[in-house]
């Protein structure tokens, strides 16, 4: 009531538009948000819309013509090369996210609940890889997994193998290892955060009501940290789904992933419309996964 009155006082009755103008404060708030909105629209929304439009164009000869058609999407389903690689990529992303969680959960649990001394140092140590450039990490992994790499040298010195083997590099296994390594800190952070959110009293209460350590973990800690697990899963999955540098650098002949197919359409093949269509198919999968995990963690998020 008060604000309405002051509003009326401010606008003289002679002003015919007084009834229609928005309250001044609100208008200012919109202004504050304007630059960032424009920025986001320009660098994210507009390019996506352009690519979306491009995905319905057609490559004629060596030109891209704005002829509306569904041919690019149809090609994904009809050309036998795309579907198998698409599923291989999904499978790899799934394997990467599951292994990141299998490794990241115990790590987060230990740092959050069990370690007392050097807890912060340990936490930082796990996050250190994030400071190292993505490409440097790829090179480092090549030095570990390669024929003359650390792993082979070690196995040779232990006399477990007679000559260097190339089982570790230039195959999907190498991609899997390196993507897992890259996803791990993200998965760790998200699980760690959700573990930290669990009130100590719930753990005490569980013990008080007769639950020993493992049962408390199973009945209380794991269910309550599910939102972290889900968001970690999503992050790892989406990262692994779209990556094309690691497959290109470490994947070898069998390591062609869906991301590489998309990139090549924008490069050698110079078929942007097809590339855009394939990109949108992947984009759709990522959006689907994000939506599902958001829904799931909304219903699991008891500790907000």
């Amino acid at each position: 009531m008060m604000s309405k009155n002051t509003q009326a006082d401010r606008n003289p009755p002679a002003d015919k538009t007084a009834g229609q103008t928005k309250p001044r404060g609100k208008g200012k708030k919109y202004l504050v948000g304007l630059p960032i909105t424009v920025w986001l629209v320009l660098i994210i929304i507009v390019p996506i819309l352009i690519m979306f439009a491009t995905s319905f164009y057609k490559k004629v000869g060596s030109n891209i013509e704005p002829i509306f058609n569904f041919g690019n999407y149809a090609k994904f389903f009809t050309d036998s090369i795309y579907i198998p690689i698409f599923f291989k990529t999904l499978l790899l992303a799934l394997a990467v996210s599951i292994s990141s969680i299998v490794l990241g959960y115990p790590l987060a649990y230990l740092v959050s609940r069990k370690v007392k001394r050097f807890r912060n140092q340990l936490y930082m140590l796990i996050l250190v890889p994030l400071w190292v450039s993505y490409l440097v990490r790829i090179v480092a992994w090549r030095a570990i997994l390669g024929r003359g790499g650390v792993l082979n040298t070690l196995l040779l010195d232990l006399h477990l193998i007679k000559e260097p083997i190339s089982l570790f590099i230039y195959n999907p296994f190498a991609i899997f290892i390196v993507l897992t390594h890259i996803s791990l800190p993200f998965v760790f952070i998200s699980i760690f955060t959700s573990l930290e959110k669990i009130p100590k009293n719930l753990i005490n209460a569980a013990a008080d009501l007769g639950a020993n350590g493992p049962r408390t973990l199973k009945e209380i800690i794991i269910p309550l940290s599910m939102p972290g697990v889900l968001s970690g899963f999503t992050m790892a999955f989406v990262t692994a789904l779209g990556d094309y540098i690691i497959p290109q650098q470490l994947g070898g002949p069998n390591g062609l992933m869906f991301g590489n197919l998309i990139v090549s359409q924008f490069g050698y093949a110079y078929n942007w419309p097809l590339g855009a269509a394939l990109g949108f198919i992947m984009f759709g999968i990522a959006v689907l996964i994000l939506t599902l995990s958001n829904k799931a963690s909304a219903s699991e998020g008891y500790l907000e």
Partner: peptide
């Protein structure tokens, strides 16, 4: 704690939210 036959009612109740 889990082997003692006593039960605590915590100030914030500590009910399991899930």
């Amino acid at each position: 704690t889990y082997q003692r036959n006593v039960s605590t009612v915590f100030q914030d109740y500590a009910l399991f939210p899930h």
